[in-house]
Design a protein around this nucleic acid. Sequence first.
DNA 1: ACAATATATGAACAATCGTTCAGATAGAAC
DNA 2: GTTCTATCTGAACGATTGTTCATATATTGT
Lengths: 195, 195
Amino acid sequence: MARTQGSHSDITGPRIRKAALNLFARHGYAAVSMRQIAKEVGVQAGALYNYTPDKQHLLFRLMREHMQELLSALGDLQQGQDAQEALRHFVGFHIRFHLQRPDEVFIAYMELRNLTPENFAEIEDLRRQYENALENILHTGQQAGQFAIPDTKIATLAVIAMLNGVMTWYRSGGRLSLDEVEQIYWNMVHKAVTA
Amino acid sequence: MARTQGSHSDITGPRIRKAALNLFARHGYAAVSMRQIAKEVGVQAGALYNYTPDKQHLLFRLMREHMQELLSALGDLQQGQDAQEALRHFVGFHIRFHLQRPDEVFIAYMELRNLTPENFAEIEDLRRQYENALENILHTGQQAGQFAIPDTKIATLAVIAMLNGVMTWYRSGGRLSLDEVEQIYWNMVHKAVTA
DNA sequence: ACAATATATGAACAATCGTTCAGATAGAAC
DNA sequence: GTTCTATCTGAACGATTGTTCATATATTGT
C-alpha cells in the first residue's frame, strides 16, 4: 500500500523541514536519524528523498533560509538615523527576531561544524553580513563622537554575544515581558558603548 | 597478541580522555565513535572499557572535571575586596581561564544536551555555582551604590555571555594580546554596569 | 623461576545508520 | 474511463554503532 492519503507534495515538504528543525534543535544533527524525521512526519524514510538530496542538505537549507530571513528583516529596518537610535533599534530587533525563532537560532550556531566546507562558507558569509550591519552602526557612532569603543570589531561580537545570551534563559510568560527584557539589554549595551 | 607494550594503566587513561576531549570538541559527542577515540590512542575499542563504563561517562567526566577546576580556580581568587575591584578580577580571570581551555569550554556548553538527566543536573549545579559568584559581586556593588543594574540575574548572564564571545574569535598570536583583550572587555563590562 | 594480576586484542553481538530502488497506488489530465 | 505521473511503501544494501567477552600476554609481587 503506497500513497495512502492523496497528493501531498506541497504539504509534505514543509512538514519534513519542520520536523527536522525540531529534532535537530532538540537532539543535534548527528544524533537525529532520517527515520526519526520520517516518523515525525508519518512517512517512511525513503519518502524524504523526494524532498532533499540528502541529510546534509536538509540542515543546510534550514540554516540558509534562517540567515536569509534574518538579513531580509534587518534590511527592512535600516534607515538613515543617527547611530544611537540605530543601535537601539538593532538591539530590539535582534532580541525580538531571535526569540521568535529559538530552534532556528539554536541550529544556526550549534550545527555549523556539521556543514560541509562549501555549505559552511556560504552560511559564514551570511553571518558576516549581519555582523557588518552592527559594526557599521558602531563605527558611525564612533566617528561622530557618540560612542567610545576601543575596538569596533570586538565590540560588535561582544554585543551580539551578549544579546544571544537572552536565548538561554528567556521563556515567554516568565517573570519579564519582552519590553522589559529589551529595556534591560538596551540599558547595558548603551552604557557599554557610550562615551 | 595482547598487551603489546607493557603496563600502561596510568598513561592510557589520561590519553583516552585527551583524545575524547579533542574529538568531541572538533566533531561533537554524537558524531565521534569509540573506535575513533581508540584509534587516536593507538588501541582497540574494547580497551577503552577498562577506563570508562561507557561513552556517556567519558563525556560526563570531562565536563565535571572542567567545572570543578573552574570553581576551584575561582575560589583561589576570591578575596574581600570592593565590588568594582572584584568584578575586574572576575573579568580577567574568566577570559584567561577559558582561553586556556578552549576544548573543555566548548564541550561544557555544546554537549549539555547529550548528558543523561542525572548527569545534566550535576553539571548544571556546578554552572549555577559559578554564576552565583558573579551575581554576588554585582549584587554587592549594587547595594553599595557603585553599580546601576536593572536586574542582577540578567546582568550576570549578560556579562558571562559577552565574555564567552571571546572564545569564538580569539586566537593567540593574533592582532591583540591577552592584556589588550582583557582591557577592552573590562572597559565594556565596567561601563555597562556602572552607575 | 613462578604465580597472580592488570591490560590489551580481536572477534562477535544486535541495532541502527544514510541511501537506493523496484513496485504500488492515488490523484490529475484528457 | 483510461492513461499518465507524482508520491509513497517496504525491503534491501553495506557500513558503522556501542558494548561484551573469551583469550593472550607483559608486568608485578613473591
